[in-house]
Design a protein around this nucleic acid. Structure first.
Lengths: 148, 148
DNA sequence: TATCAGATGATAAAGATTATTAAACGATTC
DNA sequence: GAATCGTTTAATAATCTTTATCATCTGATA
């Protein structure tokens, strides 16, 4: 890990009350120092080259910890629940970032997406899918209840 | 199942060379006749009320069959692969509908989303997430190779 | 109604994620 | 630098989701 990255990591941990451990350093580095989006298994394999005794569970736990802290993010909110859509008409989805519930929303509610530049060559565009992320009514209510 | 829905279902099956079975009728009905987005488990529980001997594997298999045929869709392309995003700068994702690979794309490539109406009351908007769906270069190549 | 390809149900297997717990470690204090 | 305390880790089991296998059954067609 580069010196600056290392210090940055230490500060991030301090800011979120996380102990700075070798394992966490390597896990964070394995994700943040490379482009692309990796799975826990891939990250585990990468880190294991430096720390052969690390456990896959440690990778999972710390990825979750980092995500909670906002140091990393999930690519998509929909991992973990395969859900079926019977609505074949064009529509958008309203997704709760807390409970991950999904509501349909008519397509007309949003203006069409406009492309400003060129997509990578060779990519055959099929459609734009817009997801409206936020906190649903129920979660807003339960959170305000908790905090008062 | 309403008569028209039943006939519609038969025609859909014919069009895709699928045998019309009791199980398929009930599975399709369980998804298509209700609003909302269900998991295979939920659909299984629903269908079991009518067909107590149905197997969960049958539900899975037929949901996949229906999706392949285009009779149903997946809410999201990201189920089954938890992926980590270390890019905290605003960006979009380019997603291949075949191999499900993901590429980052700078935010500036798309004009900001414009809301035309009102969101459901109580929903606290956090952000719009745009996904650009299509076929990546590699998959375009492999498909044209297959079809020639 | 007899035939047969395809569909189903039961079950095992595989894969992904989470929970548990004793031992080890990092941070703080002295 | 050693002692202490709370957190983190590794190992493993448990859980949950999805897929594979295969013998049996059923829908479609003749």
């Amino acid at each position: 890990m580069r010196r600056e990255t290392y210090n940055e990591f230490r500060h991030l941990c301090r800011a979120h009350n996380l102990a700075v451990t070798h394992q966490r350093q390597r896990i964070f580095e394995a994700v943040a120092s490379r482009p692309g989006h990796y799975s826990p298994e891939e990250i585990y394999e990468q880190v294991k080259q430096d720390l052969p005794s690390i456990s896959l569970a440690t990778v999972y736990k710390n990825l979750k910890t980092f995500i909670e802290a906002g140091m990393l993010r999930e690519v998509s909110l929909h991992h973990g629940a395969w859900r079926i859509d019977a609505n074949l008409h064009p529509h958008h989805h309203l997704v709760c970032t807390r409970c991950r519930s999904i509501l349909d929303l008519d397509q007309d509610l949003l203006a069409p997406v406009k492309l400003r530049g060129k997509l990578p060559s060779g990519f055959k565009l099929e459609k734009f899918s817009i997801e409206i992320q936020g906190v649903c009514k129920a979660c807003v209510a339960s959170e305000s209840r908790t905090h008062n």
